[in-house]
């Protein structure tokens, strides 16, 4: 047994997690990138991406998840997503209106279409994914502090 197996849940859970966590992340990215042509979008995609990290954390303990994405990076992504969304909205002023869809719309049902909406989805998913995972970490770490006392 390697040292990695000392923390977290049993071997079965860890093996299943190792197999599925990549798929979950990929599915989140799919939902996010096809948000403008099918049901889904930034919020749903961001939640699924955050869930993949939470899955990792539940199975392997908090160090494994925080090693992949430290909490400074989380708060950076959260602020960056919000600023990006606001910047996209402000760029609409180049066409004369706040939130104007100023990019070419493209053909319906193609991946590269719908102007600014895919960009907005990416910004929202950054904000939601980082925010949700940060909420989870904050609640879990608070509990650890309470138990140590």
């Amino acid at each position: 047994m390697s040292k990695e197996h000392d923390r977290g849940m049993s071997v079965i859970v860890k093996t299943v997690t190792r197999l599925t966590v990549g798929l979950i992340l990929l599915y989140g990215i799919y939902i996010l990138s096809h948000g403008h042509v099918s049901p889904g979008g930034g919020f749903a995609g961001g939640v699924i991406i955050a869930l993949s990290f939470i899955h990792l954390m539940l199975a392997y303990g908090k160090e494994a998840a925080l090693k992949r994405i430290p909490s400074q990076a989380l708060s950076f992504f959260e602020g960056f997503g919000a600023i990006m969304f606001l910047a996209i909205a402000l760029l609409g002023f180049t066409g004369g209106y706040f939130f104007l869809n100023f990019l070419p719309k493209g053909e319906p049902f193609k991946l590269f279409s719908a102007g600014i909406i895919p960009l907005c989805n990416i910004a929202i998913s950054l904000k939601v994914g980082a925010g949700l995972f940060a909420i989870f970490i904050a609640l879990v770490l608070l509990k650890f502090e309470g138990e140590n006392k």
Partner: peptide, 20 residues
């Protein structure tokens, strides 16, 4: 639902602090 998520997370955080 998103607003509800934010409110619930904040309420739970306050509840945990209260328990502490």
């Amino acid at each position: 639902i998103v607003i509800g998520l934010a409110t619930t997370a904040l309420l739970i955080a306050i509840a945990m602090r209260i328990y502490e």
